[in-house]
Simulated scan of single mutants.
Amino acid sequence: MEIGVPKETKDQEFRVGLSPSSVRVLSESGHTVFVETQAGTGAGFTDNDYSSAGAEIVDTAEAAWNREMVVKVKEPLKTEYKLLQKNQLLFTYLHLAADRQLTEHLIDSGTCAIAYETVEQPGANRLPLLTPMSIIAGRLAVQFGARFLERQQGGRGVLLGGVPGVKPGKVVILGGGVVGTEAAKIAVGMGAGVQILDVNVERLSYLETLFGSRVELLYSNSAHIEAAVKEADLLIGAVLIPGKKAPILVSRELVKQMRPGSVIVDVAVDQGGCVETLHPTSHTSPVYIDEGVVHYGVPNMPGAVPWTSTQALNNSTLPYVVQLANLGIKALDANPALGKGLNVKNHRLVHPAVLEVFPDLGK
């Protein structure tokens, strides 16, 4: 199979769909990989690295896209809509529930679109291709939050770890899944006071075995959310409902009650976000102030550490890429977990969770 790897076009997105080591595996399996020139530069991979691994370097995005399968990191942007092709396999993060326009263009194009974030293994929300980026985003959420709490960045001027004689900052995390757990690890390591709120009591029990008394664990309801958010120096949104838009848990009225200069980092922003006042931003312009609170809404946070992120993502995606390369669309039937990643096929929206958001697009 011919596989294209275009350069990412999202603002300061330096990750790349396939690393040179992944290209080598595919090349040794008899497939041909076409990599757009400098696609891996931001992640520390040169064109020569790819050539040495067996890839063919192409000069344009069109030359990378004009293949049987395209492997990317982030969803196609408007400038790439014209490159989508009928019956082409597209394997990437899509997050369609938060992007009707992209969903419509994928349907119109006839592309067979498979989303990393909805590939699901048996068990409770086991999302193997979302997990590595969730780990990184959770850890980065606290790093970025700590940075924007600095007064020079518009924050309250709070040091999360505090110092002897001065209480530490308070980190409130909405959601105790992978993102929330990783955020808590970093926040605890910094010495902050940490609360996690989640609706899954079994998950809260697991988190108790992990953190003990170092983290306050609360059942997530409107009363607990309201009390916690008002006192937060750093609020982290870490809510995920696979394939669906994130529910709004924090209203504008509640944001108004936060202390001026507090910071909100919503990792759920690529699924619509769980904070009413938060909208997507970019690495170039990551924050804005609304109701006196600093809002950080970069949807591709792991792009800030592309060397780590690209390799972590490829460790998880490569087995699925190999299956798609070997079997084509039949891989979706051969591997039920991969089959659950299918979002759009034959000009139709087919993923059940996305159909709940856009029921008219399934007709």
Score class of each variant (00 low, 15 high):
Leu96Asn: 01
Leu102Lys: 03
Ile114Asp: 09
Thr92Tyr: 00
Leu102Cys: 07
Leu94Ala: 09
Ala115Arg: 05
Gly110Phe: 10
His95Gly: 12
Cys112Thr: 15
Asp99His: 10
Ser109Val: 07
Leu89Gln: 04
Ala98Val: 05
Glu117Asn: 10
Gln101Gly: 00
Tyr116Pro: 06
Phe91Lys: 02
Thr111Leu: 04
Phe91Glu: 03
Tyr93Ser: 11
Thr118Ile: 11
Ala115Leu: 10
Gln101Asp: 12
His105Phe: 08
Ile107Ala: 05
Ile114Ala: 11
Ser109Tyr: 05
Gln88Thr: 05
Asp99Thr: 10
Cys112Ala: 12
Ile114Glu: 08
Glu117Lys: 06
His105Trp: 08
Thr111Gln: 05
Ala115Glu: 05
Gly110Lys: 06
Leu96Gly: 02
Glu104Gln: 15
Glu117Thr: 10
Leu90Arg: 00
Leu106Lys: 11
Thr103Ile: 04
Leu96Thr: 02
Leu90Ile: 05
Ala97His: 02
Cys112Ile: 15
Thr111His: 05
Glu104His: 11
Gln121Glu: 15
His105Pro: 00
Glu117Gly: 07
Cys112Lys: 10
Ala115Phe: 10
Ala113Met: 04
Thr92Asp: 00
Val119Asn: 09
Ala98Asp: 09
Thr118Lys: 09
Thr118Met: 12
Thr92Cys: 14
Leu90Trp: 01
Phe91Gln: 03
Asp99Trp: 05
Thr103Ser: 13
Gln121Val: 04
Leu96Gln: 01
Leu106Trp: 06
Asn87Glu: 15
Leu96Lys: 01
Asn87Phe: 04
Phe91Ala: 07
Ile114Gln: 07
Gly110Glu: 12
Glu120Thr: 13
Glu120Pro: 01
Ala113Val: 06
